[in-house]
Design a protein around this nucleic acid. Structure first.
Lengths: 158, 158
DNA sequence: GCTGAAACTGAGCTGCT
DNA sequence: AGCAGCTCAGTTTCAGC
């Protein structure tokens, strides 16, 4: 859903909601100079237009005993559409894979993987890479610190 | 806030909320076999305990005219605490940086950067890398496809 | 068209059992 | 934990700009 025409008020509303989706409309309205009802109407439109694609709870990984994060770059044997699509489907179905990007450069895919422990990660590498003939090479980096974690979009400047 | 003691009901609730934080308690209760009030009480506890760290709106980048994503690996000149901390602060303050991880391996940091266009990305590389004496090397991969984008935590198995 | 005000609906909260 | 009532945010209606 590309290029909905958004004015400055919409951007201000989005900016607040991507920080905290539970912010009440009255608070946003007070900031941007709109009534609560007007803000809610805009939010509803933004949702229906797909500008707000979803609203999610972010869970502290440590609290649920998932404490390890890995950045994995993957190089496929051949860049064939069916091979790439098969890999896409595999990572989409794998709950350990938080994020997957198809990228230019020497690597084909960049993965962000979370696991309970090293054993779980080894199980992941086996099912994802070693048992896949089409994976030529993969490189793992262990995340020591999640310096910044977000899905926020830069709405101003950028 | 590590290792709150969560039972299967809590995990089921979290599982729903990290997909859609607007799911009403009654719907979750019907699924897990709890009253709406009980679900709401648990959600409140999960928030207060920090298990649910935040609730955010996910915005479609294309809808706001931000259409380019990059994966950037960064190698610092020296691994000194003050140098690393300074870089941390810089990326935390930069709205173009969605995610930043401090990692093991040849690279020191992995960044996920979103920009409106190539010009904006060039401006980012200048202010972040070229004007920073401590950055030895950086490698950019252009994201061609966001195969999977999420912050969800694998609550089962994993 | 989009706004603000007010009435309506519905979900979250709280006290009680 | 469940139930019932209360509270408050979101929704809809309406009139006005």
């Amino acid at each position: 859903m590309p290029a909905a025409d958004l004015d400055q008020l919409d951007l201000a509303i989005l900016s607040r909601l991507q920080e905290d989706s539970r912010t009440i409309a009255e608070s946003i309205g007070a900031q941007v100079g709109l009534s609560a009802a007007a803000v809610q109407r805009r939010i509803k439109r933004l949702r229906e237009a797909g500008v707000i694609s979803r609203e999610v709870a972010v869970i502290d990984p440590k609290a649920v005993g998932v404490d390890m994060t890995f950045v994995v770059s993957v190089e496929m044997e051949r860049e064939r559409i069916d091979v790439l699509d098969a890999f896409r489907k595999q990572v989409l179905a794998d709950p350990a894979v938080q994020q997957c990007y198809y990228v230019t450069g020497s690597a084909d895919f960049m993965l962000l993987v979370t696991c309970r422990d090293m054993t779980a990660f080894e199980a992941f590498t086996r099912r994802t890479f070693f048992e896949n003939e089409e994976v030529r090479h993969f490189t793992t980096s262990v995340v020591m610190d999640r310096v910044k974690v977000g899905l926020s979009i830069p709405l101003t400047g950028g």
